[in-house]
Write a protein that binds this DNA or RNA. Structure first.
Length: 320
DNA sequence: AATTCGCCCTGTCGGC
DNA sequence: TGCCGACAGGGCGAAT
């Protein structure tokens, strides 16, 4: 699932080649991926526009055009790849065999390729999305970007905020929602998905079900620091390839082997060797270490059934 | 009003 | 061996 580090990697890799490219033709092959505009109309509007810059907001990719912006969300399985003018098609482009082979050319335009930008240079930008959870939309007035319904409610960028001020300004600390739900909430912080939420919680030693209101002041700081750390690591490793994610040249992200918990349910914790537990929190598959991330003492409400395994290690702040 | 749930969609995987 | 149900999940609208 492309999250902030994957999207950031894609944006960074597109930057050397996309700006300056003029659109000769746009192809919208799957109309239901488009928001707010018919396929033919979008194709017409994009023709002749030049890409001036590429940037990211949360998990959204923004192609800044002349006075407008084309926005792409990769959903679950979206891939955005750039084909140089002289590239040869490589039928194995998207296949992951060993993870070691680097695709040499351009992926073929297959039935999952739903959106294409053909540039006057002969280069192409291809959007491929097998599960079709992605979204593409056009913002006519670039200045309205931050007011778009999909973008206006996004929280701050986790890598750019000042922790103390952000914590002081966030109004939702008294909620009973699990902290994992908070991390997944794009109006809290923009760009975190299921992978990096689990990673950050493990790094900060928090049980994913910990009610937000039980977080001690230092735990709030710590979880923000952990979020930043796992996102930065993801970016350093060019993103996490679980199945579909690719960099714009088709190569895999390298962060998979560095994951602490995500996708490792049943395997030993890298920190203590305890068997990692798989569960469902906030409606999402969740993996955590029962020793490194002890369930906090129940403050009330639901019957937990399962007793907490280890002592909370630090104060814990059971009372409020 | 704040949360949770159901749904969209298709490739992959485990079980029988 | 082959089929098929379960599963994965970002984000939105419906339901509670």
């Amino acid at each position: 699932m492309p999250e902030l580090p994957e999207v950031e990697t894609i944006v960074r890799r597109l930057r050397p080649s996309l700006p300056g490219q003029r659109i000769r033709k746009a192809e919208a092959r799957l109309p239901r991926l488009l928001l707010g505009m018919e396929a033919r109309r979008l194709e017409k509007v994009l023709r002749g526009k030049t890409v001036n810059a590429v940037r990211r907001r949360g998990k959204y990719i923004a192609l800044e055009l002349d006075e407008s912006i084309l926005v792409v969300h990769l959903g679950m399985s979206g891939q955005l790849t750039f084909s140089p003018p002289d590239a040869q098609e490589d039928p194995a482009f998207f296949r992951t065999v060993t993870g070691l082979q680097k695709p040499l050319g351009v992926h073929p335009v297959d039935p999952h390729t739903h959106f294409l930008l053909h540039f006057e240079s002969g280069a192409r930008l291809l959007f491929r999305d097998p599960r079709t959870f992605g979204k593409i939309f056009f913002i006519a007035d670039a200045k309205a970007f931050d007011r778009h319904p999909r973008l206006g409610l996004l929280g701050p960028e986790p890598l750019e905020l000042e922790a103390e001020a952000f914590i002081a300004s966030f109004p939702g600390w008294n909620s009973l929602r699990p902290v994992k739900a908070l991390l997944l909430d794009q109006s809290f912080l923009a760009g975190i998905g299921n992978i990096y939420a689990d990673e950050a919680l493990h790094l900060s030693g928090l049980h994913p079900s910990t009610p937000i209101r039980d977080l001690a002041a230092e735990q709030k700081v710590e979880v923000l620091r952990a979020v930043r750390a796992v996102l930065e690591q993801g970016i350093r490793n060019s993103g996490t390839t679980f199945s579909d994610y690719r960099q714009p040249d088709g190569t895999l992200g390298l962060n998979f082997d560095f994951l602490r918990v995500y996708g490792r349910g049943g395997s030993p914790c890298r920190g203590c060797g305890t068997r990692l537990e798989k569960s469902v929190v906030a409606g999402r598959g969740t993996v955590h270490c029962p020793l490194c991330q002890p369930r906090p003492p129940l403050t009330g409400g639901k019957a937990g059934g399962r007793r907490s395994i280890a002592k909370p290690g630090r104060g814990g702040g059971a009372e409020t």
